[in-house]
Amino acid sequence: MKRGDSRNRRLLTGGLLTGVAIIALVIPQLVSLAAQEILVLIATFALLALGLNVVVGFAGLLDLGYIAFYATGAYAWGIFSGAGPIKMPYTRSEFWGDWGFWIILFVVLAINMGIGVMLGSPTLRLRGDYLAIVTLGFGEIVRIVANNLESVTGAALGISQIPHPRIPFIGYHFGLNPVPYYYLLLLLLIVGIFVIRRLDHSRIGRAWIAIREDEVAAEAMGVPTLKMKLLAFAIGATTAGVAGVVFASKSNYVSPASFDVFASFLVLCAVVLGGMGSIPGSLAGAFVIVGIPSFLQLRFPELDEYRYWTFGVILVAMMIFRPQGLIPSKRREAELMLEADPDIPEAVT
């Protein structure tokens, strides 16, 4: 009987996945321009949540400054595309041609991995609350530096006129149309999900969960904890960086205001509400956290002042009715069913 159950379950999830994939592919053709903009926003947040889920959900490292890595990605394209105040041969769009955006997309992987390791090597020795405080500080430092380093980041005015991507050879220009960005983000999401899923199902994923569950025991079982935490951190950082590059090219403008603490918390909420340690959960979380309030705002503009109210209602309702998240990972589901204590909602950490 059990075997039949698991097969039915697999069929069901398979069907659901196909459905979601088809909807995700077709939906931009069916909706208004404003809704297409929201879709891009959701996809961006989904990418961010996917990366943060590795850090918080898998490895159990509470990172409150995650948005800083999104910022470095966005500024990287802003600066290297030649739109920023630095005018060097290699920061001019002619130097890069149509390839600039795509090269930077890869360069940012290296940049953010470097920043992630630099920030991580001293701080990942800390545990729990201390790590949260340090990452919170890091997030603010990056924003404040961007706000003051006028010669590089354009200070509070930010960088404007950032070029949109072009596809080499065929010369297709993304321009202001949100749809190509949406498909690009979808592609990046698929790559991200593929990579992270494979890692999750390897000894690296096991090491992450072991660290989250009991770091001392993990270390005693031969898990190189610092190295594994750095890897989780670096994967989170690169994912956010890629999202940042797309964001900068889409909005053709970056400023420090986009990268405040609230943005970090928003992504964290998506991960926690979706179900920590669950890949489909973080995607669903992103949809609920940024999608629902935005669509409501689009539909009922007069209710704009209630935006944070809806957000609060979603949070409270989730804590009461589904503390394990929208789509919990299997392991977590088992744990919460066991500790059925409805009076104490699952803590964020």
Binding site: A210, E213, D214, A217, A220, R331, R332
Partner: peptide
């Protein structure tokens, strides 16, 4: 360990 330290959520 003296106090059991398993990875509780893992099988």
């Amino acid at each position: 360990f003296q106090q059991i330290r398993l990875f509780g959520e893992m099988t």
